[in-house]
């Protein structure tokens, strides 16, 4: 208030880690539901799970992992003073996020065209466990997609701060925190991918 500048990087990162815990627990609720319903309807989960296209999931996994690499590299680049390279790498992350979402759009569209979406007539003809599977699939990947968008916006804002000189090679905790958030988005996908696309095949 009276010009008392206090910057505590450890504290800022500590706070971010706490926030990431809350995100994990938010998704944890969905993973619990997945576990309970998988235990209750193992056969139907397998028959519904094979309808998911592993190519979409694998492609998006590659895209997200690459984007995380870009973020990690951008932090090192900024600390070495390469501002232009940092911005390029972060732009790469945002492009990756866009590719991820476009990919997701086609994946969902294909499903919806087959009449598989929450509340659809076709879905109501399926077995109960299959309905649960597709519903939780839409909720989980939807919530994750929302996080991809939020993460991309956060990185966009960080790029703006870098352009304005508010985030620099000496003062880069915002970039690191944005990066941590992006890694979280990546990490959650690393669990979604096998649970929905691999183990049921």
């Amino acid at each position: 208030m009276s010009g008392h500048v206090h910057k505590d990087y450890t504290g800022a990162k500590f706070g971010m880690w706490l926030f990431l815990f809350t995100e994990l627990i938010l998704f944890g609720g969905l993973f619990i539901l997945y576990a309970v319903y998988l235990a209750r309807y193992p056969q139907e989960f397998v028959s519904a799970g094979t309808e998911l296209d592993v190519r979409f999931g694998a492609g998006n996994t590659l895209v997200l992992l690459t984007s995380s690499l870009f973020v990690a590299m951008s932090i090192t680049a900024l600390r070495r003073g390469a501002k232009g390279l940092t911005q390029c790498l972060l732009a790469g992350t945002i492009v990756s996020a866009a590719i991820f979402m476009i990919n997701k759009y086609f994946e969902w569209s294909a499903k919806i065209n087959h009449g598989i979406y929450p509340g659809s007539e076709h879905l109501k003809e399926l077995a109960p466990g299959e309905m649960v599977f597709f519903n939780i699939y839409y909720v989980t990947t939807g919530l994750h997609g929302l996080h991809v968008v939020i993460g991309a916006l956060l990185i966009l804002w960080t790029m703006l701060m870098i352009a304005r000189g508010k985030v620099t090679g000496e003062d880069w905790v915002l970039l690191e925190n944005a990066g941590l958030y992006w890694h979280l988005v990546d990490l959650i996908w690393i669990f979604i991918f096998p649970l929905y696309y691999l183990i049921l095949h």
Partner: peptide
């Protein structure tokens, strides 16, 4: 209408 808690859609 995701119905994850709706028994008619297999939810609990």
């Amino acid at each position: 209408g995701t119905g994850l808690f709706d028994p008619t859609q297999g939810g609990d």
